[in-house]
Design a protein around this nucleic acid. Structure first.
Lengths: 197, 197
DNA sequence: CCCGTTGGTCAACGTTTGTTGGCCAACGCT
DNA sequence: AGCGTTGGCCAACAAACGTTGACCAACGGG
């Protein structure tokens, strides 16, 4: 038998018996990547958290980078054209991002790895371009300014996430959610809709 | 590592014959740490950049963490009580931070490592607390709100630095300096001096 | 001139990393 | 029952890392 039949019995998204293990790995990886960043999160530690053998990670995700890519499938679920009151877009966006950041650690992973790893930075650029820019295009007065205004918005949102969830500056952590919205909402509102200063 | 008896012939800042090598190491380390982050910047690669032997790094800085600590001696040189027009503090601070960020890579190192490494985050908190908070205390109306207002300021400044110098979002990089000041200046001004919303 | 001090190189160490292949147990069809 | 397929573990690999200590070369005061 010179020809080896590859395992490949279920290339389709059928339910596999190993799905529980797969998601256990994914969950542990998300936590480890969020806590330690890309380089310090080792496959061995992820495997230990998931209570399986390190070699299983390789089997199911090919490599550390493959696992990382699987973790980083992020959908910001930004509001569509409806539900976007142009007068409230600032507060709405800030609140939405706070929700996202506290709902799970994916965004922390993204930020931590985007800062460390060039591939992570590229992925972050992609998410910014594909998900935040359209919102800016919809609400800002001059479409030509949309990229700049989206970038300004991103800078403020990312900065607060940084101070609050990654660096954990005590005053930023202590700030109640509604107060963050009250401060940052008008800023984002201005970045997106105010006339060019 | 308290105080071991180093060869210590010149514990005082006297001129040593090896100073050129020492600064060569420090320069190479700053660039490598800025480009690669703490974990990926290896002592071997730093030594190769400085064209010396890896063991010299150990000799002069004790360990990788020692070298890292030597790199991270950051003085933001924020303006003192004089030269702080309360009506212009926003624009002044934003401009000053842009200067700092473009003058050398130390702040990029700090941010990159602050995000990855817990010690780096601690150091960043220290710089924030010791250097930015006093400014907020001086210009903001209610001293009790100073920490929160300083944190808000830090979030916006850090976020822009992130988007522009670390993640390199194209629209953020393309923004001319004066436009960044025009957009972010009023924001910081409001965070520091406007009445609580 | 001699010799202690300093600047620097070389080769090796022990660990940890991502990754691989072989082996065994449980399943599910016929 | 029989047997191929799948899920999982174990032991090992090579490479790269931080770190160490032995060794040599040049300097400089007595």
């Amino acid at each position: 038998m010179p020809d080896k039949e590859l395992p490949a019995p279920a290339p389709s998204p059928a339910a596999r018996r190993s799905d529980t293990t797969r998601t256990a790995i994914l969950t542990a990886a998300r936590e480890r990547f969020a806590a330690d960043g890309y380089e310090r999160a080792t496959i061995r530690s992820i495997a230990k958290d998931a209570r399986i053998d390190p070699s299983m990670v390789m089997r199911y995700y090919g490599s550390k980078e493959g696992l990382f890519a699987a973790v980083l499938d992020v959908d910001l679920r930004l509001p569509g054209p409806d539900g976007l009151d142009p007068h409230e877009v600032g507060r709405v966006l800030v609140g939405h991002f706070l929700d996202l950041w506290e709902e799970n650690e994916v965004l922390t992973v993204l930020l931590r790895v985007g800062v460390t790893n060039p591939d992570g930075a590229a992925r972050m650029q992609g998410i910014f371009r594909d998900q935040l820019m359209p919102v800016a295009l919809r609400v800002c007065p001059d479409p030509e300014q949309a990229p700049a205004r989206a970038a300004l918005t991103a800078s403020q949102v990312l900065g607060m996430a940084m101070a609050r969830y990654v660096l954990r500056f005590p005053p930023a952590v202590a700030l109640p959610r509604e107060e963050v919205v009250a401060w940052l909402g008008p800023t984002v509102q201005r970045y997106l809709t105010a006339p060019h200063p």
